[in-house]
Design a protein around this nucleic acid. Structure first.
Lengths: 205, 205
DNA sequence: GATCGTTTTAACCGGTCGGTCAAACCTCTC
DNA sequence: GAGAGGTTTGACCGACCGGTTAAAACGATC
């Protein structure tokens, strides 16, 4: 009988799903308990409060996100190769954690009281990616910060917007493997276009 | 004495602000009334229900958004000029309607029941922008759909993510006029890089 | 100043929220 | 089988939710 997965973890998973669907304001202990198939009081028994539950969900994602990025950064190679590799890892991660993409987008857009945790995390990620971007970027409109924002937008927004736009011109689900491969190719094409333009600009100056 | 602005409109404005901050689940009649400095019952007197209020807020933004885009499309010029102009108008609109950017991002990311309205709108916008993108785009990873997603991501996400990252390397507020000008330059640079790469690709084939 | 339609208000309703608690349950040990 | 400890439950609380309503306040008209 005994479920192999502890109920505490079941609750955490359910909370992530609810959070992705309904945002922080919709993260109710009752909804989480119902989705987890568990008594509502258990949510408080294991996690204390909905706020703490929320923070634990974020923490779990943040840790995984940063770990995957950190690993990607250690890969050797040319600037261009490292750039492409980091983006590949980023795409992989989001592909397997679509709920995370949804949660982050909502949190950032809403700018509620719960923001500090998100803020800290995003700044750390910025600091990490800057190391890869800085060697090829410039200043002003070509500063690493702009490329970081643009790239993360390219990746994140696909997972949130494409499903809303519906099947693509070939009738494929935007989150199907084939469609995701196409998106991956698009992002890599974009990076190459940028790097080429940057190299050209550098050569001219 | 007599406010020039009807209370109905005050309520609508307040609703937009609450919506941007707390999302659909946080759009409570009480919060809206309080922010508008108005009795709670007035919300229902003028707008019927919170759901209708939500839809009116979206409608108002959608109408303005589509109108500004439609006007931009009529501008004559080369493909490249028209492309840049459409993006300029898009940036202008978001700059003056940051709350709209936040609301859309949250709605899209949450994928709740209220989605159909958002869905219809976004598909219409896609259909519009495709007319400008198609002449210069390609197929597969270079299909108009991908560029539409990438471009709208570049614009939208700046307004939601940049404030979370804090002041830029020169200590400026990301939503200050100067910082916004820099972002505008970045986006235009990106478009040029893309168009150049596309032209080169076309010439090679 | 009486009348009428519109606008505004306070009080109230049933329902759901986060959170608590005491009792029941389960499993293992002696 | 008697405890003991962690786990699970249903009942409950005050606060807040969307929404209704009857009455008050208001402005115009005569």
């Amino acid at each position: 009988m005994g479920e192999p997965k502890a109920k505490a973890s079941l609750i955490l998973d359910a909370a992530a799903a609810v959070l992705a669907e309904s945002g922080y304001a919709g993260l109710s202990a009752r909804a989480v308990a119902e989705r987890a198939g568990v008594n509502k009081a258990l949510v408080f028994y294991y996690w204390g409060s909905t706020k703490e539950l929320f923070e634990r969900v974020l923490e779990r994602y943040y840790t995984a996100h940063k770990a995957s990025l950190a690993e990607a950064f250690e890969r050797p190679g040319t600037d261009r190769e490292r750039f492409h590799h980091v983006i590949d890892v980023y795409l992989d991660f989001m592909e397997h954690n679509v709920a995370y993409a949804r949660i982050v987008q909502q949190q950032v857009a809403s700018r509620g009281d719960h923001l500090p945790l998100v803020e800290t995390h995003l700044r750390e990620v910025l600091a990490m990616t800057t190391k890869v971007i800085a060697p090829v970027a410039g200043t002003g409109p070509l500063a690493p910060r702009h490329f970081h924002l643009s790239l993360s937008a390219l990746v994140l927004n696909y997972f949130t917007y494409a499903p809303v736009l519906g099947p693509d011109e070939r009738g494929r689900d935007p989150l199907s493997n084939e469609a995701l491969e196409e998106r991956r190719a698009h992002v890599h094409w974009v990076i190459d276009a940028w790097l080429d333009a940057l190299a050209k600009q550098r050569a001219a100056s």
